[in-house]
Every structure is written in C-alpha cells, then in structure tokens.
C-alpha cells in the first residue's frame, strides 16, 4: 500500500466517521435547530473529507474538477437549505428558541 493510498483511505474513513456523527446527531438531538447544527456542520466536514479523499484517488484532472464542483455545489445547497429551514423554524416552529 503506497503512501497515497494510505492517505486516501485514512481521509475517507475520517469522512465516514463525521457523516456517521452527523446522522447520529440528526436522530438523537432534540429540536430542529440542534439537529440542523449536527447535519450542516458534521456532514459538510464529512463531505469535504470524502471529496478530498476521492480527489487524491482520481485518475485525471477532469474527474478531479468534477469532484471539486460536486463539493462546491453540495456545500452551497446544504448551507442554503439549512438556512431556510432554520428561518422557517424561527418564525413557525413549535420549539423555536427565544434568542
């Protein structure tokens, strides 16, 4: 196993751990805001790590660019979705915190 392969595997596994943590947080936390917090923070870190791991394993530059764009697009979509849900929850939700 080369150094590159080892690094790739390490980063991918780290990414999966963050994804798992985010999912557990989504299931176990109480209230929409803390759930969103778990999802958007841990999952985005997981996504970043998995993208990075895949980037190291790509055969060519074109695929690398595609992975990079997938990362950017998923990141912005997740940030915006999280923001909209949080905003809705603030104004309509049952358990909106008094900030």
């Amino acid at each position: 196993m080369s150094v590159l392969e080892f690094t790739t595997a390490f980063i991918l596994i780290l990414g999966v751990i963050f994804f798992a943590a985010g999912s557990i947080g989504l299931l176990r936390f109480k209230g929409a805001h803390s759930r969103l917090h778990a999802l958007s923070k841990a999952d985005n870190l997981g996504l970043g790590l998995i993208s990075l791991g895949c980037l190291l394993a790509t055969p060519n530059t074109a695929t690398g660019f595609k992975i990079f764009f997938i990362w950017i697009l998923a990141l912005s979509a997740s940030a915006v979705t999280c923001f909209i849900i949080a905003e809705w929850e603030m104004s309509h939700g049952d358990d909106s915190p008094n900030l």
Binding site: S76, A77, V80, F83, I84, E87
Partner: peptide
C-alpha cells in the same frame, strides 16, 4: 423571496 434562495439562484443558474 428569502435572501438565501436569491443568492443560491445567482450561484446555481450558470452552473
């Protein structure tokens, strides 16, 4: 329209 959707649209449209 929520500002977040507006800025997402601005980023996403060309993509």
């Amino acid at each position: 329209t929520p500002t977040a959707i507006k800025s997402l649209t601005r980023v996403m449209l060309p993509f």
